[in-house]
């Protein structure tokens, strides 16, 4: 049971959502945007967050879209991970989404919520980082379209009162050769020891990681090391490991040393798979 009270708003347009946020902010109600709600509910139950109001985005038509406009795939931020995977417009994103939580939870967890969540895996951002996707944001100053790299560095960084309406991906990325592996300590459900996703574009492999450090990331330096065909694969991987953006995590899923070992194996699998294609 959630041990405190909050108000609930369900706007039916982007503008209404932003206006509610502003008003509730003025009233010092510490509003939060609410999408699938799974993280907000579980964190509120433990009293780790205390919003005075939540603004449910699911009735906003733009947030529920899956479709194409000209040469771009448009994904609404409130599309659930199970709907996204079964519609399958971007196979790498589908398999990544299928690795998150379990099928029942994926009926509730949304793409926007997974990217903006505080739980540090945020696995569905990996394909979005590699495909240089764009993000439509709405806030006090209106709507803006930005590169994912401008608003996602380790975690989402939005202006106060802003939310993700849609994510846009160029069609050329959707059918590129890809690799995806989620390695867990045990079983098929659970947080990752290592999740690695990779795409091959213009004969070069792009990679992105979750579970390795305390945030998901894509690193140009790691990609440069892994693509350096002038040296043997083991040396490339050693160099890539030297470029990790933060210490490797030790937690209940595995120690840093074990994770690093698994990461090296996974990098080798990815490079061998994609170089052969």
């Amino acid at each position: 049971m959630i041990p405190f009270d909050f108000e609930y708003y369900k706007p039916s347009s982007v503008r209404e959502a932003v206006l509610w946020f502003q008003q509730l902010q003025v009233q010092r109600k510490n509003p939060m945007y609410f999408s699938g709600g799974t993280e907000i509910i579980t964190w509120a139950r433990r009293n780790s967050i205390q919003p005075g109001a939540v603004i449910d985005l699911k009735a906003i038509p733009e947030c529920g879209v899956i479709g194409f406009h000209q040469d771009r795939l448009i994904l609404g931020s409130c599309v659930s991970l199970s709907v996204l995977s079964s519609a399958n417009p971007f196979p790498l994103l589908s398999v990544t989404a299928l690795g998150v939580a379990d099928q029942t939870a994926r009926n509730q967890i949304t793409l926007g919520g997974n990217i903006c969540g505080k739980i540090h895996f945020r696995e569905t951002v990996l394909p979005l980082l590699m495909s240089d996707s764009r993000v439509i944001l709405a806030g006090e100053k209106g709507a803006r379209e930005v590169s994912i790299h401008e608003v996602f560095l380790h975690q989402i960084k939005l202006e106060k009162g802003e939310f993700i309406v849609q994510i846009l991906i160029e069609r050329e990325y959707l059918s590129l050769p890809f690799f995806h592996v989620k390695k867990r300590q045990i079983g098929n459900v659970g947080y990752p020891l290592v999740t690695m996703a990779a795409l091959k574009k213009d004969e070069r492999t792009r990679t992105a990681y979750s579970g390795v450090c305390v945030f998901p990331f894509r690193s140009i330096e790691i990609d440069q090391a892994l693509n350096d065909a002038t040296i043997p694969l083991t040396n490339r991987i050693e160099q890539a490991i030297g470029k990790l953006p933060a210490p490797v995590v030790t937690n209940e899923e595995g120690s840093a040393a074990y994770r690093e070992y698994v990461l090296k194996q996974t990098m080798a699998e990815a490079v061998i798979t994609l170089e052969g294609r």
Partner: peptide, 15 residues
Amino acid sequence: GLPIKSCLMLAVEAE
């Protein structure tokens, strides 16, 4: 018709 975990949904969402 779809399975969901009722501990992860607010009752007000069920309107």
